[in-house]
Design a protein around this nucleic acid. Structure first.
Lengths: 117, 117
DNA sequence: CTTGACCCTGGACAGTACTCCACCCTCCAG
DNA sequence: CTGGAGGGTGGAGTACTGTCCAGGGTCAAG
């Protein structure tokens, strides 16, 4: 599909997609007229990219694991592994948030000294 | 205290502290010789800043609520309120992560099509 | 008085993630 | 054939969050 359609399907701008391609996050073939031609898998891939980004990964990291993935002979297995890693990360982050929450909750109502100088 | 001590106590660099001061995130008096003089409260305040940052607030937002706070007559009450807001935010974020986790967990082991083109 | 640790300022530079622009080409409908 | 939507490129610009540096002042110890 061409860039406009992909932009419509993902909610990303054309500029962002071109930017992602430049940084190696997205691959495309070219049509005879020079237009980019994205495969349909680009849609779930971009969903995955946004997920990973939400988890705090930089685009460079995401591109790296993506390249690793497509190079692996056992892509499905590697992907499952990656997902398991991400799940662990989510669990860690959730625990962090819980700790933060407890800390803050413990202070609500107390006249604690956190105001700037 | 002077900038070096604050840097030591918070783990931030002097440059970062000066940067925070420029952006209004941190306030200091000046000693007769021109050196910055930070109040001891700067330490918990910076801890709070890091917390808020971890929650996804930009430094500008943190500075804004900080200014608002120090202007408020009922600082302790406002702070508790802020904390309650942050707790709600944490809960929302935790729920998001849980959803993401469930999504990923459901896919582990399946040969799902998320590889880049 | 010199040395070294520490502080000051202003400004350049960096990495991340976009966003916008000028200028040009392609394609299809009317 | 023309107009307009949509595509391409290179490059500049932006916002955020720092980081580094040159050039220079301050201060206490030896």
């Amino acid at each position: 599909m061409r860039i406009g359609e992909l932009a419509g399907l993902t909610g990303l701008s054309r500029d962002t997609l071109r930017f992602y391609e430049r940084t190696g996050l997205l691959v495309s073939r070219r049509l005879p007229n020079g237009y980019r031609d994205f495969p349909p898998e680009a849609v779930p891939w971009l969903r995955y990219v946004r997920t990973a980004q939400a988890l705090g990964f930089s685009l460079a990291e995401i591109a790296r694991t993506g390249a690793e993935l497509s190079a692996a002979p056992d892509a499905a297995e590697r992907l499952s592994e990656l997902f398991r890693e991400k799940i662990a990360l989510i669990d860690a982050r959730t625990a962090e948030l819980a700790a933060l929450r407890a800390d803050l909750a413990g202070r609500v109502g107390t006249g604690c000294p956190l105001a700037p100088a």
